[in-house]
Design a protein around this nucleic acid. Structure first.
Lengths: 331, 331
DNA sequence: ATCAATTTCGCAAACGTTTGCGGAAACCTT
DNA sequence: AAGGTTTCCGCAAACGTTTGCGAAATTGAT
C-alpha cells in the first residue's frame, strides 16, 4: 500500500508532534539531536518531500519564477530561458514559461496565471503591440517582482536588463573602419523598434554623410526574405558595396542566401559583419565575424537582478549586458 | 490599503458563508441567482483570483505540467516546448521547464522538484546517459503522468510519443532512388541511439550491399565538426559520392560547411538530403530537400496523449508522429 | 532542597480552498 | 393540515505546512 509521505505520517509513526517533525527537518536548534536523527532517518526512508503547495500557502511565497516571451522558437529567447533556468535550478527555483505570441490578450491572461500561482517574480519581454504597462505594475501590488528584458519599455520606474545596443553597433563599426571598408550596406530591422534606432544611430554617427571617403547605404527590412531581396539588389551592381552589416540573425540568413545564390566569395568579393546571439554565424564558411549580444549573458544578469529584488535590497534601475566581438573570417 | 482578495474577504463583506461564496463563483446550482450575482460582482470588483496553491492543496492536483529536455537550446526541443505550451495555455495548464543537461543527477533532482510541486504530468526526453527508469516510474506512484518523447526508452509499459524514424528514413530513401542516385554517403549519429539504429536499418535494407548498381557508404559521426571532416574526406575524392544523406540538422550543418569550403555546387556536384525539424534546411541556397520530423507536431501529439492519460481513459502505448517530405532544390 | 535557567517539545492557529452533509425555510401535493 | 419536495445556504473537516507561545522536563547553581 502506498503511504503518503507527510509530516503527519512521520509524526504518527514516531509518536511525536507534527511541529517537532517540521522543526527537526529544518534543523531547528530547539530539537534534540536524537530526535532529529530519528526524524531524518524515517523521512529519508519513506522519501518524504514537503508539499510545495502547502508550503507556499502557509508562507505565501512560492519558489517559482516565470519567463514570458513573444515566442520560444527564437535562438535569443531560448538561450535566455536556458540561462535563467540554469541559475534557477541552482537556487532551488523552478521556471514556468509563457508565450504571449505577441498578443496583448494572451499576455494579460498569462499575467493572471502568474498572480493565481503567486509566483515570486517574472522576467518579461513585452509584446511589441503592448504599450500599456498597468497589468505589469499590478503584479507588484501582489508582491511579484517584474524584470523586463530585451525590449524594455521606456517607463522609468521599472527594472530592466537590456543589451548594450549602442556599444554592440559601435564595435561592429570599429571593425569596419579598421578594415578600411568604404562602401557599406547597413541592413536594419523595423524602424519603430528601439533596438533598431539605437543601432542605426551609431552607424549614422560613425559614417556621416559628410565623409566623402566612405558611403553608407541604409535599408530597413522586415524579414529574412526581404533581406535577401534587398541584399541581392545591391550585390547585382558590380562593386557597389564591399561590406554588408546585418543588424540581426534573421537579416544575416537572408543576406547569406543572396550571397550563396550569386556564389560570391567571402570576404574577397564582399565582407559580412553582423550582430548575433552566437549560433548562426558559425554555420557558414568562413564563419561570420559578429558582435555577440548573448541571451545567455543577459539571462545571468537578469537572474541576479531578480534575486536582489527578491531580497528587497534593490531599487528600480536599468542594467546592460555588454557586447563582445567574435572574429570569424568574413571581413 | 491593499485588501487581499479571498473567499473569506468576500464572504465577510456580504455576510454570507465562505462555502456559499465558493459555490457561487463556480456556478453551483445550489446557489440562488441573486446571491451569485452579488458574489460575482464583488469578486470582479476586488479582482478576486483563487489562490492556486490553496486549490492544489485541497484538491491535490495542480494544473501544471513539466517538460524536461537535455537542453533547451535546440531547435527541435524548443519547437516541441513551444507547441506544448500553446496547447497548455488553451486548456488552462501552465508549463514548467527543466533542463537535465544530460546529467543524471540533475535529472533526478528535477524529478524531485516535480514531486514536490505535485505536478499533473511531465513530458520527458531522458538524458542519454540514463538507463535507469525507476525514478520516472516512481512518479507514477504519486499519480504523476509520464510521457516520454523523442528518445524514448525501450521499456514497454510506459507512454511514448516518437517520430516515425523508419518512415522518415524511408521517405528519404525513396527520393534518392527516384532521382537515380548511385553513390551515396549516409551520415548517421551515435550508434547506440535507437533513433540512429532505426534510420540506419532502413538505409541498409533499401541499399543492400548485394546491389551492384548502387553503393552506400555509412559513417557515424558524433558532432557537427566531425560531420564536416568526414564529408570533406569523401568529397575530396573526385566523384566518389553523388549524394549525401544526413540523419540530423547537426550533421547537415557540418556537411554544408564542408561543401561551402570546397565551393561545390548543389545539386550539380553533389546532392543533399536530410532529416530535419524544419528550419536549418531553409537557411541554404538552394534550400535543402528534407524529411520533416516536426517537434511541433510531436508536441501536439504528446499533449493529447497527456490529456487522455489525465482523464484516466488510456493505457500505456507508443504513438508516432508521421514524417513528410519537403522538397528543396538540393537533389 | 529550592529556585532559576535551559533544553526540548506540543498546542493550536493560520494560510485559502473544496465539499459532504445536514438543516431551515419555502414550496407543492392530496 | 399534514407530509413530502425543493431551494438555498452554513457547518465543519480536510489538504500539509509553519510558527508563536507556553509548558514540561532536565540541568545547574546555591
Amino acid at each position: 500500500m502506498f503511504q503518503k509521505a507527510t509530516l503527519k505520517n512521520i509524526s504518527a509513526q514516531l509518536s511525536i508532534s507534527i511541529s517537532t517533525v517540521s522543526r527537526a527537518l529544518k534543523n531547528h536548534p530547539d530539537i534534540s539531536p536524537e530526535t532529529k536523527k530519528r526524524v531524518t532517518d524515517l523521512a529519508k526512508l519513506i522519501e518524504y518531500e514537503p508539499n510545495g503547495h502547502a508550503v507556499s500557502l502557509r508562507t505565501s511565497n512560492s519558489r517559482v519564477m516565470a519567463i514570458m516571451v513573444p515566442e520560444i522558437s527564437n535562438y535569443f529567447y531560448h538561450s535566455f530561458i536556458s540561462s535563467v533556468e540554469e541559475e534557477a535550478r541552482k537556487t532551488g527555483y523552478t521556471i514556468i514559461i509563457l508565450q504571449s505570441a505577441d498578443d496583448h490578450e494572451i499576455e494579460t491572461e498569462n499575467l493572471r496565471l502568474c498572480r493565481l500561482n503567486r509566483i515570486a517574480g517574472i522576467f518579461v519581454c513585452p509584446s511589441a503591440s503592448n504599450t500599456n504597462l498597468s497589468a505589469f505594475l499590478k503584479l507588484e501590488e501582489y508582491g511579484i517582482q517584474v524584470i523586463f528584458f530585451d525590449k524594455v519599455p521606456d517607463y522609468e520606474a521599472c527594472n530592466k536588463v537590456s543589451l548594450a545596443d549602442a556599444s554592440a553597433a559601435s564595435l561592429a563599426a570599429d571593425v569596419i573602419q579598421k578594415k578600411k571598408k568604404k562602401k557599406i550596406l547597413g541592413l536594419f530591422g523595423k524602424t519603430n523598434l528601439s533596438i533598431t534606432q539605437r543601432r542605426l544611430k551609431v552607424f549614422e554617427d560613425r559614417f556621416p554623410k559628410t565623409d566623402r571617403n566612405t558611403t553608407l547605404y541604409i535599408e530597413h527590412v522586415h524579414s529574412s526574405d526581404d533581406a535577401e531581396k534587398t541584399a541581392s539588389k545591391y550585390l547585382s551592381k558590380r562593386s557597389l558595396v564591399d561590406t554588408i552589416f546585418c543588424m540581426s540573425d534573421e537579416i544575416l540568413t537572408g543576406v547569406m542566401k543572396a550571397i550563396n545564390k550569386k556564389n560570391l566569395k567571402i570576404p574577397d568579393k564582399v565582407s559580412i559583419i553582423t550582430i548575433s546571439n552566437g549560433f548562426m554565424p558559425t554555420l557558414y564558411f568562413p564563419q561570420i565575424t559578429y558582435v555577440e549580444t548573448s541571451g545567455y549573458k543577459l539571462g545571468k544578469l537578469a537572474f541576479s537582478r531578480m534575486i536582489s529584488c527578491l531580497n528587497g535590497g534593490s531599487f528600480k534601475q536599468e542594467v546592460f549586458a555588454n557586447a563582445v566581438l567574435i572574429e570569424g573570417g568574413s571581413i
